[in-house]
């Protein structure tokens, strides 16, 4: 298969084409991924999430530069939302990443969510696999500007950064369930702003309240000013530390196993559904069930029971 060969030999055009095929869910992409999968598993997948405007793209730009300085190659997947009304999207994360232009050790790809709601695009995991197989040492995955429950990144990345900025909420926000729980490293960006210490204190209080299992690693809080490159070296070190910790504690194996299980479950569900639809002559039976439930001739629970009999 020459697409695989040219991709493994560093052909960036081939890589870009493959990512499009993966995004568009073309059968050819699935065949290539099957081969590439066996070559993947080496890259460190780092997720960067947080509310819109906290500085995720600028941080990703600075982190990529830091990793490049330590001699590692970096791929970036930058995700922005698709309009639910038109299917269009403005993908604007590259604006903050112009410093990385001209470096052949960096590859940036913007993705639209195309209807996914968990903060990632549906194809993000497969695109990460392709970048991993293509030999990038670090894959930085920037989610859409996340609210409180866009936590899919926790199921994909080895290390998750949750980026906060001053002035976004009080200490009750900090103890709510959701996005803060998935942080392996907490980042307070824009740390030169007046209320930054209040944000740091709220996060510290939140961490003190949680009762980690004995032997668990405390979540570090990194303060950064991404626009000036301040605190970036420390943040890059915290990311590396987390990876070493995962490797040493067996956490990496556990996370990988959980991720593979979820991936197989999802694919199984999709494939079984597709097979069901094709075996039963397209959507006719489904349409009939919808009409029957609409007219309240049957309830949805019994309708599904009947269909899978």
């Amino acid at each position: 298969m020459d697409l695989v060969d040219s991709l493994l030999s560093g052909n960036r055009r081939a890589l870009a084409r493959l990512i499009t095929q993966i995004e568009n869910d073309l059968p050819v992409a699935r065949n290539v991924l099957a081969t590439l999968y066996m070559r993947a598993g080496r890259a460190h997948l780092v997720g960067v999430t947080g509310a819109p405007g906290t500085g995720k793209s600028t941080l990703v730009n600075e982190l990529a530069r830091a990793f490049r300085q330590s001699g590692r190659t970096v791929a970036i997947i930058a995700i922005d939302p698709t309009s639910p009304f038109t299917g269009g999207a403005i993908l604007g994360d590259r604006i903050r990443m112009r410093d990385l232009s001209g470096d052949s050790g960096v590859f940036i790809r913007s993705m639209a969510t195309r209807g996914s709601l968990g903060g990632l695009a549906r194809a993000t995991a497969d695109v990460a696999t392709a970048l991993d197989a293509a030999g990038f040492d670090v894959v930085l995955i920037e989610t859409v500007g996340a609210g409180q429950s866009e936590v899919d990144i926790a199921q994909l990345a080895h290390t998750v950064l949750v980026v906060e900025a001053p002035g976004l909420g009080d200490d009750v926000q900090a103890i709510k369930a959701g996005i803060l729980e998935i942080a392996d490293v907490l980042v307070v960006n824009k740390a030169d702003q007046p209320n930054a210490d209040i944000t740091v204190r709220a996060l510290r209080g939140m961490l003190a309240l949680s009762q980690p299992e004995s032997g668990a690693r405390p979540t570090p809080i990194c303060e950064t000013v991404a626009t000036e490159g301040k605190g970036i070296a420390e943040l890059a070190a915290a990311i590396d530390d987390h990876r070493s910790h995962l490797n040493a504690s067996g956490g990496m194996i556990e996370r990988t196993r959980a991720r593979i299980r979820r991936q197989i479950e999802t694919m199984l569900r999709e494939q079984l559904y597709a097979r069901f639809i094709s075996r039963n002559g397209g959507h006719a039976e489904l349409d009939a069930a919808v009409e029957a439930v609409m007219d309240r001739r049957v309830d949805p629970y019994s309708a599904v029971e009947e269909m899978i009999k």
Binding site: L91, R94, I95
Partner: peptide, 11 residues
């Protein structure tokens, strides 16, 4: 965008 395209805006 409103016409349903994915626009990569680079600034």
């Amino acid at each position: 965008r409103d016409a349903g395209m994915e626009v990569i805006y680079t600034g």
